[in-house]
Amino acid sequence: GKELVLALYDYQEKSPREVTMKKGDILTLLNSTNKDWWKVEVNDRQGFVPAAYVKKL
């Protein structure tokens, strides 16, 4: 099944490779191999968020 993460904080994208999320959002985790930036999918968009801003559910 898909792995989900919870947004712990708001995050505003700073580049086209990133995505914006709001605290409390549930996101689909696509890739967590990089310890600093995790790739997630939110609202049919894929991009990176800081790993410290999310936690695995």
Rank of each mutant, 00 (worst) to 15 (best):
residue 48 F to T: 04
residue 17 R to N: 15
residue 49 V to N: 00
residue 47 G to H: 02
residue 41 E to M: 11
residue 25 D to I: 04
residue 8 L to G: 02
residue 29 L to H: 01
residue 45 R to T: 08
residue 39 K to G: 05
residue 34 N to Y: 10
residue 3 E to D: 12
residue 44 D to A: 08
residue 57 L to Y: 09
residue 55 K to W: 10
residue 53 Y to S: 10
residue 8 L to F: 04
residue 17 R to V: 12
residue 21 M to T: 03
residue 22 K to W: 09
residue 43 N to F: 12
residue 45 R to G: 05
residue 10 D to I: 02
residue 14 K to F: 06
residue 53 Y to G: 06
residue 28 T to M: 12
residue 38 W to F: 07
residue 1 G to A: 14
residue 57 L to N: 03
residue 57 L to P: 04
residue 30 L to K: 05
residue 33 T to P: 04
residue 6 L to F: 08
residue 35 K to W: 08
residue 47 G to D: 01
residue 13 E to L: 07
residue 14 K to H: 09
residue 19 V to K: 02
residue 15 S to R: 09
residue 43 N to A: 12
residue 41 E to P: 00
residue 48 F to K: 03
residue 47 G to A: 04
residue 21 M to H: 01
residue 49 V to K: 00
residue 25 D to W: 12
residue 35 K to Y: 08
residue 4 L to S: 06
residue 48 F to Y: 15
residue 20 T to A: 07
residue 36 D to K: 13
residue 14 K to W: 04
residue 56 K to M: 11
residue 36 D to Q: 12
residue 26 I to F: 06
residue 25 D to A: 08
residue 7 A to E: 00
residue 7 A to V: 10
residue 22 K to V: 09
residue 56 K to N: 07
residue 14 K to E: 09
residue 32 S to C: 11
residue 22 K to S: 09
residue 3 E to K: 10
residue 51 A to C: 07
residue 11 Y to K: 00
residue 32 S to N: 09
residue 50 P to N: 02
residue 43 N to E: 13
residue 53 Y to I: 06
residue 23 K to M: 08
residue 10 D to C: 05
residue 22 K to N: 09
residue 44 D to G: 15
residue 4 L to Y: 15
residue 6 L to R: 08
residue 30 L to P: 00
residue 22 K to F: 11
residue 20 T to S: 15
residue 24 G to I: 00
residue 47 G to S: 02
residue 50 P to Q: 02
residue 11 Y to T: 01
residue 11 Y to N: 00
residue 47 G to F: 08
residue 15 S to A: 10
residue 25 D to N: 07
residue 27 L to N: 01
residue 57 L to A: 05
residue 5 V to E: 00
residue 47 G to C: 03
residue 33 T to H: 12
residue 34 N to R: 10
residue 53 Y to W: 07
residue 9 Y to I: 10
residue 31 N to P: 03
residue 24 G to L: 03
residue 5 V to S: 03
residue 57 L to W: 09
residue 27 L to D: 00
residue 28 T to V: 15
residue 15 S to E: 09
residue 14 K to V: 08
residue 30 L to H: 06
residue 1 G to L: 14
residue 34 N to V: 05
residue 50 P to F: 04
residue 8 L to C: 08
residue 29 L to P: 00
residue 18 E to A: 06
residue 38 W to M: 04
residue 15 S to L: 09
residue 17 R to K: 12
residue 35 K to A: 14
residue 16 P to K: 11
residue 40 V to D: 00
residue 35 K to G: 09
residue 35 K to R: 12
residue 19 V to Y: 04
residue 13 E to D: 05
residue 49 V to F: 01
residue 8 L to S: 03
residue 2 K to F: 13
residue 47 G to L: 05
residue 16 P to Q: 10
residue 57 L to G: 04
residue 21 M to N: 00
residue 23 K to Q: 10
residue 31 N to Y: 07
residue 10 D to S: 09
residue 48 F to Q: 03
residue 54 V to Q: 00
residue 38 W to K: 01
residue 55 K to C: 14
residue 31 N to F: 06
residue 34 N to M: 08
residue 37 W to Q: 03
residue 37 W to E: 04
residue 57 L to V: 12
residue 33 T to Q: 13
residue 28 T to K: 12
residue 54 V to D: 01
residue 39 K to C: 11
residue 37 W to A: 02
residue 15 S to T: 13
residue 46 Q to R: 12
residue 39 K to W: 15
residue 35 K to C: 10
residue 3 E to H: 12
residue 4 L to W: 14
residue 3 E to P: 12
residue 27 L to Y: 11
residue 22 K to I: 09
residue 45 R to E: 05
residue 54 V to A: 03
residue 26 I to L: 09
residue 6 L to N: 03
residue 40 V to W: 00
residue 46 Q to W: 08
residue 32 S to K: 07
residue 39 K to N: 07
residue 17 R to L: 14
residue 13 E to K: 14
residue 41 E to N: 06
residue 50 P to K: 04
residue 2 K to M: 12
residue 3 E to N: 11
residue 46 Q to F: 08
residue 53 Y to P: 01
residue 24 G to E: 02
residue 37 W to F: 06
residue 48 F to N: 04
residue 15 S to M: 07
residue 57 L to E: 05
residue 2 K to D: 08
residue 36 D to N: 14
residue 31 N to L: 09
residue 13 E to V: 06
residue 10 D to L: 02
residue 4 L to A: 07
residue 28 T to H: 10
residue 34 N to E: 10
residue 4 L to I: 09
residue 49 V to P: 00
residue 38 W to L: 04
residue 50 P to L: 04
residue 24 G to V: 00
residue 17 R to S: 14
residue 51 A to P: 07
residue 40 V to K: 00
residue 33 T to G: 10
residue 12 Q to C: 11
residue 22 K to Y: 12
residue 35 K to E: 12
residue 4 L to H: 09
residue 42 V to A: 14
residue 54 V to G: 02
residue 30 L to R: 03
residue 2 K to H: 14
residue 1 G to P: 15
residue 28 T to R: 11
residue 12 Q to V: 13
residue 17 R to M: 14
residue 46 Q to I: 15
residue 14 K to S: 10
residue 29 L to M: 04
residue 16 P to M: 09
residue 20 T to E: 03
residue 4 L to P: 04
residue 30 L to C: 07
residue 25 D to L: 05
residue 8 L to H: 03
residue 55 K to Y: 11
residue 29 L to D: 00
residue 46 Q to L: 08
residue 3 E to A: 11
residue 12 Q to M: 13
residue 10 D to E: 06
residue 7 A to D: 00
residue 21 M to P: 00
residue 48 F to I: 07
residue 5 V to K: 01
residue 3 E to L: 11
residue 38 W to V: 07
residue 49 V to A: 03
residue 8 L to I: 11
residue 5 V to D: 00
residue 52 A to E: 10
residue 26 I to R: 05
residue 12 Q to N: 14
residue 30 L to F: 04
residue 17 R to G: 15
residue 7 A to Y: 01
residue 42 V to R: 15
residue 43 N to M: 11
residue 40 V to H: 00
residue 48 F to G: 01
residue 56 K to H: 09
residue 27 L to K: 00
residue 52 A to H: 13
residue 1 G to D: 14
residue 52 A to G: 12
residue 37 W to G: 00
residue 35 K to P: 14
residue 9 Y to L: 10
residue 48 F to E: 05
residue 17 R to T: 13
residue 21 M to Y: 02
residue 48 F to P: 00
residue 55 K to N: 06
residue 9 Y to V: 13
residue 37 W to S: 03
residue 50 P to R: 04
residue 10 D to P: 06
residue 36 D to H: 15
residue 26 I to A: 03
residue 25 D to S: 07
residue 32 S to W: 11
residue 8 L to M: 11
residue 24 G to W: 06
residue 21 M to F: 10
residue 46 Q to E: 11
residue 17 R to D: 14
residue 23 K to T: 07
residue 52 A to W: 09
residue 43 N to Q: 12
residue 25 D to K: 03
residue 23 K to C: 07
residue 41 E to W: 07
residue 40 V to I: 08
residue 42 V to Y: 14
residue 47 G to N: 01
residue 8 L to Q: 05
residue 18 E to I: 03
residue 42 V to L: 15
residue 40 V to T: 01
residue 50 P to S: 02
residue 10 D to Y: 06
residue 18 E to V: 05
residue 19 V to D: 01
residue 3 E to V: 13
residue 44 D to H: 12
residue 18 E to L: 05
residue 6 L to K: 08
residue 44 D to S: 12
residue 21 M to E: 00
residue 29 L to T: 02
residue 38 W to G: 00
residue 54 V to F: 05
residue 52 A to V: 11
residue 32 S to M: 09
residue 49 V to H: 00
residue 52 A to N: 14
residue 11 Y to Q: 00
residue 57 L to S: 04
residue 9 Y to T: 08
residue 7 A to T: 04
residue 10 D to K: 03
residue 40 V to Q: 00
residue 11 Y to H: 04
residue 55 K to A: 13
residue 29 L to A: 02
residue 32 S to D: 15
residue 29 L to F: 03
residue 22 K to E: 06
residue 48 F to L: 10
residue 24 G to M: 03
residue 56 K to Y: 11
residue 51 A to I: 03
residue 54 V to H: 01
residue 51 A to H: 03
residue 7 A to R: 01
residue 33 T to A: 11
residue 46 Q to M: 10
residue 38 W to R: 02
residue 39 K to L: 15
residue 15 S to G: 13
residue 34 N to Q: 10
residue 16 P to N: 10
residue 22 K to H: 10
residue 17 R to E: 14
residue 52 A to M: 11
residue 1 G to V: 15
residue 22 K to Q: 10
residue 7 A to N: 00
residue 38 W to T: 03
residue 9 Y to F: 13
residue 51 A to W: 02
residue 13 E to I: 06
residue 5 V to P: 01
residue 30 L to I: 15
residue 23 K to P: 03
residue 36 D to G: 10
residue 25 D to F: 05
residue 51 A to L: 02
residue 32 S to H: 09
residue 19 V to Q: 03
residue 42 V to M: 15
residue 9 Y to C: 11
residue 42 V to F: 15
residue 20 T to L: 02
residue 8 L to R: 05
residue 7 A to C: 12
residue 36 D to E: 11
residue 45 R to D: 04
residue 2 K to S: 11
residue 6 L to S: 05
residue 53 Y to C: 10
residue 46 Q to T: 13
residue 20 T to C: 06
residue 6 L to T: 08
residue 29 L to Q: 00
residue 51 A to M: 05
residue 9 Y to R: 15
residue 57 L to Q: 04
residue 38 W to S: 03
residue 52 A to Q: 10
residue 52 A to F: 09
residue 12 Q to D: 14
residue 5 V to C: 12
residue 5 V to I: 08
